[in-house]
Design a protein around this nucleic acid. Sequence first.
RNA 1: UCCUCGGUAGCUCAAUCGGCAGAGCAUGCGGCUGUUAACCGCAGGGUUGUUGGUUCGAGUCCAACCCGGGGAGCCA
Length: 447
Amino acid sequence: MAPIVSIRSLQDHVGEEITLQGWLYNKTGKGKLQFLQVRDGTGICQAVVFRDNVSPEAFEAGKALTQESSLIVRGVVRAEPRAPGVPGGYEVDARDVQAVSIAEPYPITPKEHGVEFLMANRHLWLRSQRQWAAMRVRATIIRGIREWLDGHGFLNVDTPIITPAAAEGTTTLFAIDYHGEKAFLAQTGQLYNEANIFAFGKVYCFGPTFRAEKSKTRRHLQEFWMVEPEIAFCDLEQLMEVEEQFVSHIVQKCLAECEPELKVLERDLTHLAKVTPPFPRIHYDDAVEMINDAAARGELVPGYPDPVPAIEWGDDFGSPHETYLAAQFEKPVFVHHYPTQVKAFYMEPEAGRPEVCRSVDLLAPEGYGEIIGGSERMSDAGKLVAAIEHHGLPRETYEWYLDLRRYGSVVHSGFGLGVERTVAWVCGLDHVRETIAFPRTLTSMRP
RNA sequence: UCCUCGGUAGCUCAAUCGGCAGAGCAUGCGGCUGUUAACCGCAGGGUUGUUGGUUCGAGUCCAACCCGGGGAGCCA
């Protein structure tokens, strides 16, 4: 039997007889000629079955194939500019066709479908080109994340998913029963990360995160993946430098390695090519001014029919504010020094100006929203006790966290990057549900 | 939780003023040597989300409910 070759590497086998194993994506019959679009997980390629080149049995086998039937094709690879596919440009001149399993009438056709139907058939939808491309970009982004962190002295130390208490708001936790004790699914590994840096210097955790938010928007999932690096001896300014290097690496890696996938997604690559350090930085004070100037001019939120709403200093940004701000820049933009009152208790207040804290969010361009939230952490035990009490949090729960400030405290910072929002941005997808194989949304957890 | 839009064939949609339930795709059969979501011909395929109401007559109007989409708040 001719060697089995993946569609992704067909270009290296021109003129050779090879074997393809895969599934029928689409078919065009032309009497004595059949064009079989075969996908094998690495790409899509056309097998041309000409009646005079194959046995009558093989020709009939080809004719009998339905969409998504599994098949094996033996044939000779040739370069052919007319050949469609992913990456395309090469086709297989078939010498033999075998049906492995004839598929029953397949519900997802190459035509359009609605979201409800596609989500109900998510297990099949994943076979479609765009979903295939998005999952491959996601995997590349995850490789880029680990590659950059592992290559820059970060140790991967994963944090628990079952936790006893909330780091942030208590309304968005999924509660579980832990042998009779109430426990929660983790929203962040950050507090544990802070313990880990005192052992390992620079660490990151990477795993699923759970938020029971009643959010029904294109940017929200109940279960999403987050990578959270944490760095000892690092202040806010150094943190921003890390973030922009990190994000730029991820994006540039996708551009270098996922050209066929991004083409399937019809992504405009000129936007992504601009993602290189440094990223613009704006102070919260200036951001408020920009927003209120736009509101005074009656400017519309890009992509929405509504005007930019005015904001009062001290309030957190709403979605329309973030969308407007990000649209003013070609690259991701840092917004730093948010008001202390809208941020988590552990963020370091600015020296001499405690009403703002040393926090920074990174907003993705083109309306993809906040992809990173981070800050310099409070490093003084006394100030941290006061913050815990001010937020009405139970001090006992945080004793171990306070210990970190008692035994060799240092300036340290960290951030969390949401994988799904990053994938949506890089892929140009309009909804995060397409950035993970089996999304958990407010209204759906099946299949 | 609130605002907003929708639910008709397996799928995507149409149905004028309240008056015979219709098309494309998919499926089956036939035709074609360069198709790119092929095309041409023929065929099968319907409890119009549910319940109730108005009416000679309801996919269409009214009420309640169910399900889904988009958005807000909150967040990555």
